[in-house]
Amino acid sequence: MKTIKLGFIASLMLLLVASCSSEDDNEKDLQKPTISLNYDAGFPKACEVLTKGETYHFKAQVTDNLELAAYSIDIHNNFDHHTHDDQEATCDLGTIKDPVNPFIFIENYSIDQGLTSYEINVSITIPNTIDTGDYHCSFSVTDVTGWQSVTSMDIKIVE
Protein backbone atom coordinates (compact mmCIF):
# COMPACT_ATOMS: atom_id res chain seq x y z
CA MET A 1 0.00 0.00 0.00
CA LYS A 2 2.85 2.35 0.82
CA THR A 3 4.39 2.14 -2.60
CA ILE A 4 0.99 2.79 -4.16
CA LYS A 5 0.51 5.88 -2.07
CA LEU A 6 3.99 7.10 -2.81
CA GLY A 7 3.47 6.52 -6.49
CA PHE A 8 0.26 8.49 -6.45
CA ILE A 9 1.69 11.32 -4.43
CA ALA A 10 4.68 11.54 -6.77
CA SER A 11 2.41 11.64 -9.82
CA LEU A 12 0.10 14.19 -8.26
CA MET A 13 3.08 16.35 -7.43
CA LEU A 14 4.26 16.11 -11.01
CA LEU A 15 0.88 17.25 -12.28
CA LEU A 16 0.78 20.04 -9.72
CA VAL A 17 4.25 21.19 -10.65
CA ALA A 18 3.15 21.03 -14.25
CA SER A 19 0.14 23.25 -13.65
CA CYS A 20 2.05 25.73 -11.51
CA SER A 21 5.05 26.11 -13.77
CA SER A 22 2.82 27.49 -16.50
CA GLU A 23 3.54 30.86 -14.87
CA ASP A 24 6.43 31.88 -17.02
CA ASP A 25 9.74 33.12 -15.78
CA ASN A 26 10.52 34.68 -19.14
CA GLU A 27 8.34 37.54 -20.26
CA LYS A 28 6.67 36.64 -23.52
CA ASP A 29 5.37 39.24 -25.90
CA LEU A 30 1.66 38.54 -26.15
CA GLN A 31 0.59 41.90 -27.56
CA LYS A 32 -0.25 42.67 -31.14
CA PRO A 33 0.86 45.96 -32.67
CA THR A 34 -1.84 48.58 -33.24
CA ILE A 35 -2.72 50.44 -36.40
CA SER A 36 -4.85 53.55 -36.63
CA LEU A 37 -6.01 56.10 -39.21
CA ASN A 38 -8.32 57.82 -36.76
CA TYR A 39 -6.38 61.04 -36.53
CA ASP A 40 -6.40 64.19 -38.65
CA ALA A 41 -3.58 63.25 -41.00
CA GLY A 42 -4.62 59.56 -41.32
CA PHE A 43 -5.29 58.75 -44.99
CA PRO A 44 -7.34 57.40 -46.67
CA LYS A 45 -10.38 57.51 -44.42
CA ALA A 46 -13.34 55.19 -45.09
CA CYS A 47 -15.25 56.05 -48.29
CA GLU A 48 -12.45 58.37 -49.49
CA VAL A 49 -12.70 59.33 -53.18
CA LEU A 50 -9.40 59.39 -55.09
CA THR A 51 -8.83 60.86 -58.55
CA LYS A 52 -6.82 59.23 -61.35
CA GLY A 53 -3.42 60.84 -61.98
CA GLU A 54 -3.24 62.40 -58.52
CA THR A 55 -0.57 61.59 -55.92
CA TYR A 56 -1.66 60.92 -52.34
CA HIS A 57 0.20 60.44 -49.05
CA PHE A 58 -1.10 57.28 -47.39
CA LYS A 59 -0.65 57.77 -43.65
CA ALA A 60 -1.33 55.60 -40.62
CA GLN A 61 0.00 55.53 -37.06
CA VAL A 62 1.39 52.19 -35.83
CA THR A 63 2.59 51.27 -32.33
CA ASP A 64 3.84 48.22 -30.48
CA ASN A 65 4.69 47.41 -26.88
CA LEU A 66 8.05 45.88 -27.83
CA GLU A 67 9.34 46.70 -31.30
CA LEU A 68 7.78 47.29 -34.72
CA ALA A 69 9.14 45.31 -37.67
CA ALA A 70 7.43 45.80 -41.05
CA TYR A 71 4.28 47.00 -42.80
CA SER A 72 2.52 46.61 -46.11
CA ILE A 73 -0.07 48.44 -48.18
CA ASP A 74 -2.43 46.66 -50.54
CA ILE A 75 -4.93 48.27 -52.92
CA HIS A 76 -7.15 45.99 -54.97
CA ASN A 77 -10.50 46.24 -56.71
CA ASN A 78 -13.81 45.43 -55.07
CA PHE A 79 -15.78 45.43 -58.31
CA ASP A 80 -17.51 42.19 -57.29
CA HIS A 81 -18.24 43.48 -53.75
CA HIS A 82 -16.52 40.35 -52.41
CA THR A 83 -15.77 41.85 -49.07
CA HIS A 84 -16.21 44.97 -47.01
CA ASP A 85 -14.04 47.04 -44.76
CA ASP A 86 -13.81 47.03 -40.98
CA GLN A 87 -14.58 50.72 -40.53
CA GLU A 88 -17.81 51.85 -38.97
CA ALA A 89 -18.96 53.88 -41.97
CA THR A 90 -20.85 52.10 -44.77
CA CYS A 91 -19.93 53.43 -48.17
CA ASP A 92 -22.15 53.49 -51.25
CA LEU A 93 -20.76 50.93 -53.65
CA GLY A 94 -21.05 51.22 -57.45
CA THR A 95 -22.54 48.58 -59.70
CA ILE A 96 -20.88 45.15 -59.88
CA LYS A 97 -18.63 44.84 -62.94
CA ASP A 98 -15.74 42.80 -64.34
CA PRO A 99 -12.24 44.24 -64.09
CA VAL A 100 -10.44 45.14 -67.35
CA ASN A 101 -7.30 46.84 -66.14
CA PRO A 102 -7.72 47.16 -62.39
CA PHE A 103 -5.28 49.04 -60.20
CA ILE A 104 -3.08 46.69 -58.16
CA PHE A 105 -0.78 48.13 -55.53
CA ILE A 106 1.15 45.57 -53.50
CA GLU A 107 4.16 46.83 -51.53
CA ASN A 108 6.06 45.87 -48.38
CA TYR A 109 8.27 48.08 -46.25
CA SER A 110 10.46 47.50 -43.22
CA ILE A 111 10.55 49.75 -40.17
CA ASP A 112 13.87 50.87 -38.67
CA GLN A 113 14.96 48.82 -35.67
CA GLY A 114 14.09 49.77 -32.14
CA LEU A 115 10.89 51.75 -32.74
CA THR A 116 7.68 51.29 -30.74
CA SER A 117 5.82 54.05 -32.56
CA TYR A 118 5.94 55.02 -36.23
CA GLU A 119 3.91 56.93 -38.79
CA ILE A 120 3.46 55.16 -42.11
CA ASN A 121 3.80 57.74 -44.89
CA VAL A 122 3.82 56.41 -48.47
CA SER A 123 3.12 58.51 -51.51
CA ILE A 124 1.12 56.69 -54.18
CA THR A 125 0.23 58.02 -57.62
CA ILE A 126 -3.00 56.64 -59.06
CA PRO A 127 -2.22 55.70 -62.69
CA ASN A 128 -4.29 57.22 -65.49
CA THR A 129 -4.80 53.92 -67.32
CA ILE A 130 -6.63 51.93 -64.67
CA ASP A 131 -10.32 51.06 -64.17
CA THR A 132 -12.33 53.45 -62.01
CA GLY A 133 -14.70 52.11 -59.37
CA ASP A 134 -14.74 50.59 -55.90
CA TYR A 135 -11.44 49.64 -54.36
CA HIS A 136 -10.15 48.29 -51.12
CA CYS A 137 -7.14 49.60 -49.28
CA SER A 138 -5.55 47.67 -46.45
CA PHE A 139 -2.62 48.40 -44.16
CA SER A 140 -0.92 45.69 -42.15
CA VAL A 141 1.89 45.86 -39.62
CA THR A 142 4.00 43.29 -37.80
CA ASP A 143 6.12 43.39 -34.66
CA VAL A 144 9.39 41.55 -34.05
CA THR A 145 7.58 38.65 -32.39
CA GLY A 146 5.45 37.95 -35.45
CA TRP A 147 2.14 39.42 -34.28
CA GLN A 148 0.23 41.21 -37.02
CA SER A 149 -2.57 43.78 -37.18
CA VAL A 150 -4.58 44.67 -40.26
CA THR A 151 -7.04 47.41 -41.05
CA SER A 152 -8.88 48.04 -44.28
CA MET A 153 -11.23 50.58 -45.80
CA ASP A 154 -13.46 50.98 -48.85
CA ILE A 155 -12.32 53.72 -51.23
CA LYS A 156 -13.39 54.85 -54.68
CA ILE A 157 -11.25 55.86 -57.65
CA VAL A 158 -12.85 58.27 -60.12
CA GLU A 159 -11.84 59.97 -63.39
Binding site: F8, S11, L12, L14, L15, A18, A69, A70, Y71, S72, I73, D74, I106, E107, N108, S110, S138, S140, T142, D143, V144, T145, G146, W147, Q148
Partner: peptide, 25 residues
Protein backbone atom coordinates in the same frame (compact mmCIF):
# COMPACT_ATOMS: atom_id res chain seq x y z
CA UNK B 1 -2.82 8.54 -13.07
CA UNK B 2 -0.82 8.67 -16.30
CA UNK B 3 1.83 11.37 -16.40
CA UNK B 4 4.15 11.82 -19.35
CA UNK B 5 7.21 13.82 -20.30
CA UNK B 6 8.22 14.44 -23.86
CA UNK B 7 11.10 16.07 -25.67
CA UNK B 8 11.17 16.98 -29.34
CA UNK B 9 14.61 17.44 -30.83
CA UNK B 10 13.20 19.33 -33.81
CA UNK B 11 9.46 19.97 -33.84
CA UNK B 12 8.32 21.27 -37.24
CA UNK B 13 6.33 24.41 -36.81
CA UNK B 14 4.86 27.05 -39.15
CA UNK B 15 6.37 30.17 -37.65
CA UNK B 16 4.84 33.60 -38.31
CA UNK B 17 7.76 35.92 -39.10
CA UNK B 18 7.82 39.72 -39.08
CA UNK B 19 8.32 39.95 -42.84
CA UNK B 20 6.00 40.35 -45.79
CA UNK B 21 5.74 38.93 -49.27
CA UNK B 22 3.24 40.66 -51.56
CA UNK B 23 1.64 42.24 -48.48
CA UNK B 24 1.07 38.83 -46.90
CA UNK B 25 2.83 37.95 -43.67
Amino acid sequence: VSPFANYFENYIYLNPTSNYFQTQQ
